[in-house]
C-alpha cells in the first residue's frame, strides 16, 4: 500500500489524542473520516489503585504493526496510528490509542475495531493489578469474550 501511513509506538509516557489525529491528517485533503479509540485505566469501583503493564520490547511494536497493516489492507484505510503505554498506569490515565482514517466512516470504524480486537489478543502486553487496599494484586486473566470478539472477523 503506497502512501498509507502506519504509525506504531510503545511508550511509557502519555499520548495526546488531538496531536496524533493532527499528525495523521496533516497536509491531506483526501481523508473523509477519522475514528479514534482510547482505552483508559478503570478503578474497578475503587478497588484498584494502579495497573502495571509489562510488554515484550520489539515484538510489541512488530505485532501491532502487523495488525495495523492487516487492517489497512482489509478495510482500505488511508492511515492508522496505534500507541500503547507500558509501566505503571493510574485510574483515569490513558493506556492505548488507535486512530484510523478512510474516505467514508464505516471503514474507519471497522478498522479501529479490528485493530483493538487483535491488539487485545495478540499484542504481547500483560496487566498486573495493584489493589487499593494494599493486598497483593494479581495478573489479569485473558477473557473468552476477547477471543470471541477477535474470531468474529474470520466468520
Amino acid at each position: 500500500m503506497i502512501g498509507v501511513a502506519v504509525t506504531v509506538r510503545v511508550q511509557r509516557g502519555d499520548f495526546d489524542l488531538a496531536a496524533e489525529v493532527a499528525a495523521l491528517s496533516a497536509g491531506r485533503h483526501d481523508i473523509g473520516a477519522v475514528v479514534t479509540f482510547c482505552g483508559l485505566c478503570r478503578d474497578e469501583a475503587g478497588t484498584l489503585s494502579a495497573l502495571e503493564l509489562e510488554h515484550y520490547p520489539g515484538m510489541a511494536e512488530a505485532e501491532i504493526t502487523r495488525i495495523c497493516n492487516e487492517a489497512v489492507a482489509r478495510f482500505d484505510l488511508q492511515a492508522a496510528t496505534a500507541v500503547h503505554r507500558y509501566g505503571k498506569i493510574l485510574p483515569g490515565e490513558n493506556i492505548v490509542l488507535v486512530v484510523t482514517a478512510s474516505p467514508h466512516r464505516q471503514a474507519a470504524f471497522d478498522g479501529a475495531n479490528f485493530i483493538m480486537d487483535f491488539l487485545k489478543t495478540a499484542a504481547p502486553f500483560w496487566k498486573k493489578e495493584h489493589a487499593a487496599d494494599g493486598s497483593a494484586g494479581g495478573w489479569v486473566s485473558a477473557k473468552d469474550e476477547d477471543d470471541s470478539a477477535r474470531d468474529r472477523w474470520s466468520e
Binding site: 482505552g39 503493564l53 510488554h55 515484550y56 520489539g58 515484538m59 512488530a62 505485532e63 500503547h84 493506556i95 492505548v96 483493538m116 491488539l119 487485545k120 489478543t121 495478540a122 499484542a123 504481547p124 502486553f125 500483560w126 496487566k127 495478573w139 489479569v140 486473566s141 485473558a142
Partner: peptide, 28 residues
Amino acid sequence: AINQEHVDHGEKIAGAREIALFPPMTGG
C-alpha cells in the same frame, strides 16, 4: 513466540535465535 512472532506448539524451533514463553495476552 519464535524470533518475536507467534507460533503454534507444533512449530519447529530449529534456527531460532530467541524463543519467548508467556501467558495469554491482556493488553489494550
